[in-house]
């Protein structure tokens, strides 16, 4: 056992202090440089915003650009278990890798298109449930009522719990004999369900877990949106005799849209790329029946040692998600709220 001593505490605080100092210095230096070059030298009109932007930009670029480039490099290599340190890079390897994504099973049985279909189903079901559940709860909470704070607090518990813990807890709760899900079903006089040994039920189980995890985020976002809608609109609508549903459709929904669109996009991206829930609850099994694109990519690299292939596969997933978001932005009218303000 390593005891927590003052030494360790002091070392931690010291290192953090140093880090903050260094970051502050770097920020100041970068901004000063930007100021000198853009403002003094080039007399650029937008020198101030770029100055403000520079530190974050440099950080994000450094952490994204090099690794991203490295990944593309690997995608054009034949790196695998037998060629781990002495792999070679070439266009033909890249073409093979990218073609393999589509023509061969990604893992043992399951193919890219099966995984794609499943991932889309997973994303749609989850996000729809998140939005509906979140919206329902937000509407219920958006009124003066007793215990509102308590409800809101308890309802965000799934979001606040570390995912590693809730996922493992749920794994236990889906146990055929000892999990509370089946115990509850039996008390209700229903047949127990083989949650973790039947691939379809396992998929239902992971969806349930993720719905449970994701509702609080949507609830909080949408509650924020609802609260920013002025009461006057509803008062006016009532004078005109609009029903509750009409008010919802013609006031709530349009005014909620600027909040809803980015929330849905983020929700889709996070759900699409969700790794923890699947990996910790079912590990993608049984029969690879709950693997999604992301988990199968991770497995291809770290369990099947297919580094080159895995890198190509990651690019395909990324591009797919990118196209989806671009299309969704076009169709939904995009981030009007974000661009115009």
């Amino acid at each position: 056992m390593i005891p927590l001593t003052w030494d360790i505490v002091a070392r931690g605080l010291g290192e953090i202090g140093r880090l903050l100092g260094i970051v502050a210095v770097i920020v100041v230096v970068l901004e000063a440089l930007a100021y000198l070059i853009l403002h003094r030298l080039l007399k650029y009109k937008y020198s101030l915003p770029f100055m403000l932007l520079l530190p974050a930009l440099v950080g994000v670029m450094a952490l994204i650009i090099y690794p991203f480039g490295f990944n593309i490099y690997l995608a054009f290599s034949n790196m695998n278990m037998f060629r781990f340190k002495d792999f070679s890079v070439g266009l033909s390897y890249g073409i093979t890798n990218f073609l393999d994504v589509f023509r061969l099973p990604v893992l043992q049985k399951v193919t890219f298109f099966q995984l794609l279909g499943r991932t889309i189903l997973w994303t749609v079901v989850n996000v729809v449930c998140h939005v509906l559940g979140g919206l329902g709860l937000a509407i219920l909470l958006n009124r003066p009522m007793r215990g509102k704070g308590v409800y809101r607090t308890l309802l965000v518990v799934p979001w606040a719990l570390p995912q590693v813990i809730s996922a493992l807890a749920w794994r236990g709760e889906f146990h055929f004999q000892y999990g509370f899900v089946n115990l509850m079903l039996e008390r209700l006089g229903l047949r127990p369900v083989p949650w973790l040994s039947d691939p379809r039920w396992a998929f239902v189980a992971v969806v349930l877990v993720n719905v449970w995890l994701g509702i609080p985020f949507m609830m909080v976002v949408l509650l924020g949106g609802l609260q920013s809608i002025s009461q006057e609109y509803y008062d006016a609508a009532q004078i005109d005799g609009a029903s509750g549903w009409q008010q919802f459709r013609s006031i709530t929904m349009p005014l909620l849209k600027p909040v809803l669109t980015p929330a849905v996009i983020l929700g889709v991206v996070w759900t699409f790329n969700n790794f923890n829930v699947i990996y910790l609850v079912t590990r993608g099994g049984p029969m690879e029946g709950t693997d999604l694109l992301v988990t199968s990519m991770f497995k291809a690299v770290f369990e099947f040692y297919r580094y080159g292939f895995g890198a190509a596969y990651a690019m395909v997933i990324f591009v797919f998600l990118f196209i989806f978001s671009a299309v969704y932005l076009r169709l939904s009218g995009g981030f009007k709220g974000a661009w115009e303000s």
């Binding site: 990944n71 790329n273 790794f275 770290f302 990651a314 990324f318």
Partner: peptide, 25 residues
Amino acid sequence: RQGLLFLLTTQMIPAGMLLLPIYIM
């Protein structure tokens, strides 16, 4: 606009893809 979109794009990178390169860095 491109900047804001770029930031959103970074969220689309699948987990695990950047793991090895970041580690090397």
